[in-house]
């Protein structure tokens, strides 16, 4: 599972590049590398997909019984002075 030595710096910086968090000279080095390296362009696309995967909302993760109990807590926020700490 090796990354070619010439690509290691580029690979280390792909996530930060997509986060727009690289220093200008690192950004420039990376763009120069991506301009000729098909392998790292492939990995860049892959990291983009990974980020999309992380953003996928968790469907139906709030069970009805938990929803009802938490809804009760929200109701209590309306009037319970002890909850409000007033």
């Amino acid at each position: 599972m090796s990354v070619p030595p010439g690509c290691r710096e580029a690979v280390r910086r792909l996530w930060d590049h997509l986060d727009r968090g690289l220093e200008p000279n690192h950004e420039q080095q990376l763009e120069q590398h991506l301009a000729f390296c098909r392998r790292c362009c492939g990995e860049l696309e892959f990291v983009r997909e990974l980020r999309t995967l992380l953003r996928t909302p968790t469907a139906a993760s709030l069970p009805p019984d938990v929803h009802d109990r938490l809804d009760g807590v929200i109701d209590a926020l309306g009037g319970d002075e002890s909850l409000a700490g007033a």
Binding site: L62, L70, D71, V73, I74, L77, A84, G85
Partner: peptide
């Protein structure tokens, strides 16, 4: 509520409900 619970599950796993409850109380204050 659904979004808060999803975040709580990511951070605290099984303790998610309790975490959301305390969050609501603290938010009220």
């Amino acid at each position: 509520l659904p979004g808060l619970y999803a975040l709580a599950r990511h951070l605290a796993g099984q303790d998610a409900e309790d975490l959301v409850q305390e969050t609501l109380v603290r938010a009220c204050r």
